[in-house]
Structures are given as structure tokens and as C-alpha cells.
């Protein structure tokens, strides 16, 4: 028994040791280096998270009838956990988007869970969070950007583009570039914020793991969990705000 614990401990400390011994030219240890493929590892881990989410949701709701789903399960199960998080998100979405919130929840909820688990993956030794590559975060932000404008056109028709022209017609030549720049700043700030926070957090953990392998890094692991939740949440809330700005029917935004 003790041997097994020591073995498990050694296995988990292995990446830390590999990380600590990183010299010039050596890449940090990663489980994906064990695979005989040459795909960038952030792509592999993002796919892994996506597959994991599919499996989780199938395990939680797969094969059950809608009538059975009305009654919550008596104990604390996976389904209850997911429903708890979704109810929290739906509450905030209802606050921001009004009673149309449920229409946009498939996109927003998927975004939240995908980003959350990608962030949390960085806390497992030997994995790199996919969100510390700009490619992934820009991809997510571009999806939000395009779907925001798609929703806007779907709700308001061609009149949606009038918002870009400002309140009075003679100001349109000035307002058009201003509006375009301020709309372009949104996906950039979304992706940059997520990328920066996760990269910084991952770096802090790895540096402290290299300096002091005991006790001290656990503080930063706690911080990492907090940052992971917070960034996933902020990304989702900002997407909600952008979508609500696009689909609003009033003139005052």
C-alpha cells in the first residue's frame, strides 16, 4: 500500500521534476510528448477537453426521457452539479438578456464549460492549458464576434447596420470608423484577457514549482482555480453583454 502511494506520488512529481530541470533547449514535460503524433499539443488538449465534455454530458443526461429530467436526483451527482452551474449561468443570462436568454444558452453555456475545463487542465501536472495559446482564445473570441452580429441581423434585419451610423445622418462618416474600431476592440480584448490571465497564472505556478517544490505552490494552485473560474465567467458574461447589445430593439445603445 505504501509502495503504491509512493509510486503515485512519484508519478505526479515527475512532471514537476522535469519542469524544474528544464535547461536550455529542453521543452517542459508533457503527457502528449508520449504520443507518436506531431500535432501541436494545445490542439490535442483542446480536442481532449471537447471529447471529455461530450462524454460528461452524455453521462449526465444521455438516454433519459424529458419527463424523468424534471425530478432532480436525490444525492449529489454529476447531473446535479452541471444543473447547478447551468442554473447560475441562466440566472445571470436572464438578468442581462431578458426573457430571450434561453435562445442563446447553447452557445454561451458551451463556451463557459469549454473555457473552464481548458483553464483547469493547466493545473494538472504535465498538461498545458490550451487557453495559453493565442490561437485558441482568438478562435473563441471570433466565434463570439461573428455570432453576435449574426444574432443582431437575425433579430433586427438590415436595420441592425443603422446602429453603426450614429444618431444623425451628417455624423455618419465620423461615427462609422469609430463604431467599427470599438466593435473590433471587443474580440481582441476578450481573447487577450483570457490568454494573458491564463499564461500569467500558469507561469507563476511553474516558476514557484521550480523554486520551492513543497507547500508554497499550493497557494498558487488555489489562485489558479480562482482565476480559471473567473476568466471563464467573465468571458461568458461579456459575450452575454455583447449579444444583448446587438439584439436590443431600443435605440439607446
Amino acid at each position: 500500500m505504501r509502495k503504491r502511494i509512493a509510486g503515485a506520488l512519484g508519478l505526479t512529481l515527475l512532471p514537476a521534476a522535469a519542469l524544474a530541470s528544464v535547461g536550455g533547449g529542453h521543452e517542459p514535460f508533457s503527457w502528449f510528448h508520449l504520443l507518436p503524433v506531431h500535432i501541436p499539443q494545445y490542439v490535442l488538449s483542446a480536442f481532449m477537453i471537447a471529447a471529455m465534455l461530450v462524454v460528461l454530458s452524455l453521462a449526465a443526461v444521455g438516454g433519459k426521457k424529458t419527463d424523468d429530467m424534471v425530478v432532480p436526483e436525490p444525492r449529489f451527482t454529476l447531473r446535479n452539479l452541471l444543473e447547478l452551474i447551468m442554473a447560475f449561468l441562466l440566472g445571470i443570462a436572464g438578468d442581462i438578456l431578458g426573457h430571450h436568454a434561453k435562445k442563446y444558452m447553447p452557445l454561451l453555456g458551451t463556451c463557459f464549460f469549454f473555457i473552464l475545463f481548458m483553464n483547469l487542465l493547466g493545473l494538472i501536472p504535465g498538461f498545458v492549458p490550451p487557453t495559453d495559446k493565442m490561437n485558441i482564445t482568438v478562435g473563441l473570441a471570433v466565434i463570439i464576434f461573428l455570432s453576435t452580429h449574426y444574432f443582431g441581423v437575425r433579430e433586427n434585419g438590415v436595420a441592425y447596420f443603422k446602429h453603426f451610423l450614429g444618431p444623425v445622418w451628417w455624423m455618419a462618416p465620423i461615427m462609422l470608423p469609430i463604431e467599427i474600431v470599438s466593435h473590433l476592440a471587443r474580440p481582441l480584448s476578450l481573447s487577450l484577457r483570457l490568454f494573458g490571465n491564463i499564461t500569467g497564472d500558469h507561469m507563476v505556478v511553474s516558476i514557484f514549482l521550480g523554486l520551492v517544490p513543497f507547500v508554497v505552490p499550493s497557494i498558487f494552485y488555489g489562485l489558479g482555480v480562482f482565476v480559471s473560474f473567473m476568466q471563464a465567467f467573465i468571458f461568458t458574461v461579456l459575450s452575454m453583454i455583447y449579444i444583448s447589445g446587438a439584439v436590443a430593439h431600443e435605440e439607446d445603445h
Binding site: R193, F233, I234, V237, I241
Partner: peptide
């Protein structure tokens, strides 16, 4: 939470 998200942006 809503205001926090908004102003941090």
C-alpha cells in the same frame, strides 16, 4: 457579478 464583468472589460 454583472457589474464586475462589465467594468473589468
Amino acid at each position: 457579478f454583472r457589474e464586475l464583468g462589465k467594468y473589468s472589460a
